[in-house]
Amino acid sequence: MNEAQPTVDLRDVTVEFRYHTALEDISLHVHPGELLAVVGPNGAGKTTLLKVLLGTIRPTRGTVRVFGREPWRLGEQRRRIGYVPQRTTGISNFPVRVRDVVMMGRYGRIGVGRRPSPEDHEAAQRAMDRVGIAHLREEPIPRLSGGQRQRTFLARALASDPELLLLDEPTTGVDILASETFYELLDRLRSNGITILVVSHDIGVVAAHADSVACINQRLTLHGRPEEVKSGAVLACMYGPHATFLDHGPVPHMVVGEHVHLRPDEKDGDG
């Protein structure tokens, strides 16, 4: 698996905005069929990282390759990426049905000014079946629970038959049971060969399902197997005041600052 060209390959990527640096010298890669969890505190640049991979933000320095090409030059190949954005508030009241939202995932493929073909309808139906929302197809978005809505957005991302899935905080505001179901769904998609990169600040759930974990706090502070990434070190990256002295490779021992309060369910990252 590791000999193959990585699906996602970032080298020394730095993204600077007008007033601040969002990402600094990030190097990481995701191999085909892998599930990488990117964790980090709010404002750590996780969403920026996803936008770099989508090609909507260009790095100030460094190189990015998705399927071996620069993301903003992917053109038609962009369809190979499925994206589940962070939940936005306006959308939950929008008067539109589940099947319409799922079909939106194919709009780019269908082409401007054209209507969905029977083939498009089949693909949308397949995507709904895959995430278990076929029975909700006629349901309006405002009537869905948080978990159902997230699965709808996952189905939208799957509707274009992507090979790489990018998910931004997919289970924020979703209850624990629905969140667990959601990650089991991701497990299944990965075993079907889809490469997945999921961004989250919920280390507990994510680490239990990931092949590897990267912790980002502007810089990449950790990148390893979930069992290597001991909770103390991850927490240091998440909340620690001097997170940048951590580095790639073996996890250094470190004292977690006393302002960190753990909920019991977050203590074990490696489940």
Binding site: T56, R79, I91, V101, M104, V112, G113
Partner: peptide
């Protein structure tokens, strides 16, 4: 442009990502 306008109204970022 019915479906395109629906898409950018619902979620402009996703519309762009899906290639519109």
């Amino acid at each position: 442009l019915f479906k395109e306008l629906l898409s950018i109204t619902f979620d402009p970022e996703m519309a762009e990502v899906t290639g519109l």
